[in-house]
Design a protein around this nucleic acid. Structure first.
Lengths: 97, 97
DNA sequence: TGAAGTACTTTGTGATGCAAAGTTGAAGAA
DNA sequence: TTCTTCAACTTTGCATCACAAAGTACTTCA
């Protein structure tokens, strides 16, 4: 028999990725540095987790210039929002009885 | 600044361990085989995850005989219940804004 | 004697996590 | 013009983890 834990999305099975998605659900778009500060992560650590979410097509990366400075912003894709919602629902079911 | 994700308990940062704890919160004690079947895991997989929870002193292991058969049962320790509750509260806070 | 059940442990392989250091390119200071 | 800084990564290196599959030890039942 298949338990709920096997329907949890592996892409979100990590506290950093949970944090990233939570922030991106609450904010339409967030810059690299804001996200880094919000979650208190090192550059490399954030970059690698976001890369994983990008590869899964749950996060969209946009690069542009603000004034003269390069600026990278992240946002959740439609698929990302759906997948995350489902993940949360599964979690909730799992965590009460 | 320290984000909530850093207060999530690493011992529970995995779907299998979430599943084990969820079952042990709902049932005072569960046998190896019942847990294995409930979560649909292989012997080795369950054994290694439970070992991690036992090492953290979140799960208590009791070995006895039922009739003539060896029987191992697991239960959550007091510390385990508290830690898991805290973990869930942190999760909830994290997952709404 | 042999098959089956219980509860692991071991092995092997590959993926993951993380800090720290390195990189690239542009901007502003000295 | 040389130096430093900032942004956003990438690379490196190491340690840990996850998991399947196979092996183990003991016992019981046929």
């Amino acid at each position: 028999m298949k338990h709920l834990i096997h329907t949890l999305n592996k892409a979100f099975d990590h506290r950093v990725r949970l944090g990233v998605m939570a922030v991106l659900m609450a904010n339409e778009s967030v810059s690299f540095n804001d996200l880094k500060d919000a979650l208190d992560l090192t550059d490399g650590n954030l970059a690698s987790h976001v890369a994983a979410l990008e590869k899964a097509e749950y996060v969209l990366v946009s690069k542009q210039f603000i004034g003269k400075k390069p600026n990278t912003t992240y946002s959740a894709t439609a698929a990302g929002k759906v997948a995350f919602q489902q993940h949360l629902e599964t979690l909730e079911k799992l965590l009460r009885g």
